[in-house]
């Protein structure tokens, strides 16, 4: 058994609103093992980005963590001192935020931005630092001369590669990437996915990749978790899950992906995701589910349980 690196237990993160809290992440548990790429998929508003912020304790008000544990190599990130947390972020866990290619400082050269992240955590000579920055740029397929450039001189895809280089700068054990390929052209997108796979082999690090893009997930992740309305509804081996999705929502989501290589009639999922201020009782997919069992699914909330090896599903059809 590979060692567990991150163990998220019963995590609950809400957003305060004047009426009722938005239950964005509601009792979510999963783990990430060493050198694993875990995908988190789901549609907008399902809570996947909130989950990333919560793990890193970056959730800002009106968001708040209501409960649960985030165990990183055994210590609970939600309980440690801010000072220690800052030491862990970047050095042990780094983060590629959503639309991060627009988050680079426009008036700083690339070398200064990457350099800052390193100097904050390590004592290193100037010469070594320059060498390190150049190596990082080369490892994401960029020319070392990019170090002297400003962000506006780079394309979106190149800036995204700079951000990935920054995330790799301190040799972290875990990288969390939130929609790393959205808004990039398809050829660049492919290059970025390739890089995320390289991270595992080069750094021997684990990656959590959050994206709604199921085809991107299919290309690189080892295991996949599918979220719906603040909950994980299914998690398991990616091959297995794509071949034989068990939860009715996973099935619908996978059968709604158009494919360039074959023309098959696509069926959308009728209805819309619930308002997370007042989610329906029982299973949150109940109102849209083609297999719902009235009197059961809208009363009892199904728990995420193992239904076959390494596959967990939260659905009353499987018990």
């Amino acid at each position: 058994m590979p060692d567990t690196l991150l163990d998220v237990r019963n995590l609950i993160a809400y957003y305060m609103t004047p009426t009722a809290p938005v239950r964005a992440v509601d009792n979510v548990s999963f783990n990430v093992t060493e050198k694993e790429i875990l995908g988190i998929a789901g549609e907008s508003g399902c809570g996947k980005s909130t989950l990333a912020y919560s793990i890193l304790r970056l959730l800002k008000p009106p968001g708040y963590i209501r409960g649960g544990e985030v165990l990183f190599k055994g210590s609970d990130l939600l309980k440690i001192e801010e000072e220690e947390l800052r030491r862990i972020r970047w050095k042990h866990i780094s983060y590629i935020p959503q639309s991060s290619m627009n988050a680079l400082n426009p008036v700083m050269r690339i070398e200064e931005q990457i350099g800052d992240a390193i100097i904050n955590h390590e004592k290193i000579s100037k010469g070594e630092l320059r060498k390190r920055i150049e190596d990082l740029l080369v490892s994401v397929g960029l020319s070392p001369s990019v170090a002297h450039m400003y962000p506006h001189e780079l394309s979106g895809g190149m800036r995204q590669r700079v951000v990935i280089a920054m995330a790799m700068a301190l040799d972290p054990e875990l990288i969390i990437a939130d929609e790393p390929t959205t808004a990039l052209d398809v050829v660049v997108q492919r290059g970025i996915l390739q890089l995320l796979r390289d991270i595992r082999s080069k750094l021997k690090a684990s990656v959590i990749m959050i994206t709604h893009d199921m085809a991107a997930q299919a290309q690189i992740v080892d295991r996949l978790a599918i979220m719906y309305a603040g909950k994980i509804v299914e998690i398991g081996d990616a091959n297995d899950l794509f071949n034989d999705p068990l939860h009715p929502y996973s099935r619908a989501l996978i059968s709604a992906i158009p494919s360039i290589s074959e023309k098959k009639k696509l069926k959308g999922v009728p209805g819309f995701p619930p308002d997370l201020r007042s989610p329906p009782p029982g299973c949150r997919f109940y109102p849209r589910c083609p297999h719902r069992i009235p009197g059961k699914c809208n009363v009892d909330e199904p728990r995420l349980i193992e239904v076959k090896n390494d596959r967990l599903v939260a659905c009353h059809l499987y018990r």
Binding site: V186, G191, A215, A216, Q219, V221, N239, F242
Partner: peptide
């Protein structure tokens, strides 16, 4: 470069950006 939504049909070759 279009990703195929099937883990059994992953890209085999690499591309250089």
């Amino acid at each position: 470069s279009v990703p195929v939504p099937d883990p059994e049909r992953r890209w085999k070759n690499r591309i250089e950006l």
